[in-house]
Amino acid sequence: MAKIIVVTSGKGGVGKTTSSAAIGTGIAMRGFKTVIIDFDIGLRNLDLIMGCERRVVYDFVNVINGEANLKQALIKDKRIETLFILPASQTRDKDALSKEGVERILNELAEEFDYIICDSPAGIESGAMMALYFADEAVVVTNPEVSSVRDSDRILGMLSSKSRRAEQGLPGIKEHLLLTRYNPERVVKGEMLSVEDVGEILAIKLLGVIPESQAVLNASNSGQPVILDQDSDAGQAYLDTVARLLGEDVPFRFLNVEKKGLLKRIFGG
């Protein structure tokens, strides 16, 4: 039976799709059969970040409407054998995702897959609510910035009251905090909220800290999830994050200002 993990945030542009791609890839790299679903309605992003934009034939809504079956819509990743992607629809109909339809597809996927990662769109409208509804665990992506923290708090409220587990009185969704675009230098200067500050306000367990990194833009440019760039700080931080998600105890890195050697200063780290 598959574990359903939603990657959500409330706020837009904080790193949900980047994180879904990285975490999904990381879990698949460990041998688990993994599928990442793009829950956006109308704007497709996951396929671009994963580098499979030219292989999209059928999408999530096609499958819900019976225009195609899962096998036809799922895109197999060319780099990792156990990784699949279900792209988002480009419809403009916000009611295109029905609860029954989504449930049917998740059940079908759960028979074959070990992990289902739901990449949520921003906001609290139907795409976002549908992405979190069936989740067992949630990765709440937050930037150390005021509006992101408040929106994450809002989304946490939704997770604890508007999910299927909440409605059916089941044990709640397991919530994890993923702090992205962290810049230790600015934290030290007192210009940026620290890990402790965000943790105190949101009061959920810290899953990972991803440093602000140039590697992220390079990754999306090339259509390679950043976790595959194992030399980069962001890539390594995502590897640590996946390890913790799978239950391992990994100390947190990239929290402190690094002393850059001369070579690193010239070529960038």
Binding site: L48, N218, N221, S222, G223, I266, F267
Partner: peptide, 27 residues
Amino acid sequence: LLDYFRSTKKNTASTAKERLQIIVAHE
């Protein structure tokens, strides 16, 4: 000397531009 080292780094922006030109035209 620096240019020599830099050119071996992947020029991801041009990869991105190529990918975008194809996919946006298609869409």
